[in-house]
Nucleic acid binder design. Sequence first.
DNA 1: ATGTCAAGAAAATCTTGA
Length: 257
Amino acid sequence: MKIATYNVNGVNGRLPVLLKWLEEEKPDVACLQELKAPNEKFPLEAIEKAGYKAVWHGQKSWNGVAILSREHEIEEIGRVLPGDPDDVQSRYLEAMINGVLVVCLYLPNGNPYPGPKFDYKLSWFARLEKRAKQLLDFKTPVVICGDFNVMPTEIDVYKPERWVNDALFRVESREAWFNLVGQGWTDAVRKLYPDKVIYTFFDYFRNAYQRNAGLRIDHFLLSDELVPKLKAAGVDHHVRGWEKSSDHCPVWIELRK
DNA sequence: ATGTCAAGAAAATCTTGA
């Protein structure tokens, strides 16, 4: 089973790019972030025509997440990250697909640091830790993937010294990441490529893609049941070079049956 | 501080978030 995550940066504005990528790579499951569209403007018809079933949780202008499945049925498990009834941002979706609990998330960016947005990021991370612990206790195969808006280590940043006070690389954000992973999760891409420079995001500014000035912020976390099944992982780097592309690349893993 | 995008409000540019 091939599972992908892709921050599409506007599901309608960049729909041709999404459809071209789905047609080319045909992932079994695709987790999308930053739909930037309310529920009623989700392009279901085009996605069904591309061969996918979908569950989604949209929001006007910002955020929004979706999970697509080609072959298997999708059973939605939840669309809210527990822990804050006042949080109305659409950033979290859980679905059961082919016996795997798939979590699609769009973690808050958190800039500027310091400030209320950074505080929101950390509190969101704390809520995620709680939910992730529950998921581990289910003893079922779980994949948590999406745009975590965190570069875990220096190898994940083209110029680490420039990013020390950015919310994506602040020590608090990285600590939160490692606390989460420390529960017993495996960073799938790093498991297969411990030392390789791998980027999943390139800013629109200053020709970041052409200069390979990237970040690794889109991740897959696997529960123990799935680690022995991890067959391959990669980044569809070339998609970032397409016209009207998102600033993120699709990232994927392949699991043995 | 800068740079590039898209969506939304509003009425052709400006604001916002990333």
